[in-house]
Design a protein around this nucleic acid. Structure first.
Lengths: 242, 242
DNA sequence: CGGTATCCCCCGCGATACTG
DNA sequence: CAGTATCGCGGGGGATACCG
């Protein structure tokens, strides 16, 4: 009640809960099927564990999720209630709006851990060879010079690694990270970027040919971006200078 | 960028802007057709003018609204862009979700100024007599003992007054405010509340008979509430006591 | 009326350390 | 691994005064 809007307007009552920082992203993970604490956390790498814990408690209090002990393992699972699942259309439309109209990406938005998680959920494992396949990524254009990460598919089970997984890579991808993410998000064509050499592949010819099929790209890649370029920010800057 | 989430996720980029306190409520007013500063402010009575000003500037910078000087009058008008108007389905669904699942109302949520604004937008002026009609409300159950307000319709133009408008009232409504708002929101039947005497009308028989038709109620009144009663809050309390 | 400038308090949340 | 406890700061935003 601390952050209440002082009006009974249903939109205000909804935003009192859902407008709190991180909350709708947690809801989104629950809707996406994440159940365990660290599973949710992996999709929100910049969120502190203590804050995630607080948000999950808040969501329980509001009746959007239930925490229950795991049957055979340690720890708990967090289950979305129907109140939570009914937010799916809202989350989808907000995300689509973000794809169309939200601000352009900045270098600070390029968290490799998030990209790794995001790619791990959008890998076409059915199109991949049986047994184990290791895809390595090496990104440049980041503050720490370059950054490596790995996706490991083992018969449909995908793991993401920020440290060397101990297996040899079957195919590797090298690119400027911003450019790669623009392709992943559908702002550029992945195949054209590869053809132009902006995204470089290494590995067997078969794997290099197959890789573009494995990477499904963002689920929103087909939603066209409508926001005009950077002129707007410039004009905002100008206004502030008087 | 201060409050960025550090990930390029479109939902995160959208919430970075829209999750800021008050922002989506301002967007909602723009979508509802409010154009002038004080017109927007009337629908958000608990928001300070300085914060509304800041939010409107922020929305301009983000490309959701445009400020332009009025042609013949003093001041400016604020126009929603298509990026803003595309949020209409999001706002509608969030409001509907709030009606179904958001927390129950508390006395602090009953701002008379908001109720007055809200009723002024949902008055069936076509069903009202031509010329001037004044409806008076007197609410009890508030901290300041009781609170009066007036709606004045003059040939389709509706004004809300928190002070006596200087005209005599044609019909007056007396009720406990929480109970009235529950009826307004569709949680109770307005007609049944009147019949049971929980909402009392005074005025000519014709006006008393017509008044329930004039008050259209919340636009979301027909959306059924699904949230269970207060047991949930109790269990949250209990958890916090250990 | 239609806003802007300033001050200041509070609490949200990030960081860190710790526990079963 | 799966969280919880604590501490400290930064800035969001409420209140108030002011201006064109």
């Amino acid at each position: 009640m601390a952050k209440a809007y002082g009006q009974y307007c249903p939109l205000a009552l909804a935003m009192e809960l859902l407008g709190e920082r991180w909350t709708l992203l947690v809801v989104s993970r629950l809707i996406d099927g994440c159940r365990r604490f660290n599973e949710i956390h992996r999709g929100l790498p910049r969120m502190s564990a203590s804050l995630l814990s607080a948000r999950l408690t808040r969501l329980q209090d509001a009746g959007l999720c239930e925490k229950r002990p795991m049957a055979e393992q340690a720890g708990h699972e967090y289950l979305p209630t129907s109140a939570c699942l009914e937010l799916e259309p809202v989350v989808m439309q907000l995300a689509a709006w973000g794809q169309r109209w939200a601000r352009d990406m900045e270098p600070e938005d390029l968290d490799p851990a998030f990209l790794a998680w995001s790619m791990s959920t959008r890998l076409d494992t059915a199109a991949m060879p049986s047994g184990r396949t290791v895809i390595e990524f090496e990104f440049s254009g980041l503050s720490r010079e370059y950054r490596r990460l790995w996706l490991v598919n083992h018969d449909g089970v995908v793991d993401m690694c920020l440290k060397h997984p101990g297996f040899e890579s079957d195919v590797s991808v090298k690119a400027d990270m911003q450019r790669f993410v623009e392709a992943w998000r559908g702002f550029r064509s992945m195949r054209e970027e590869i053809a132009a050499g902006h995204i470089r592949l290494e590995g067997s010819p078969a794997n290099r040919r197959a890789l573009p099929k494995w990477l499904l790209g963002s689920a929103l890649a087909s939603v066209p971006r409508l926001r005009p370029g950077a002129e707007r920010e410039v004009s905002a800057q100008l206004r502030r200078w008087h």
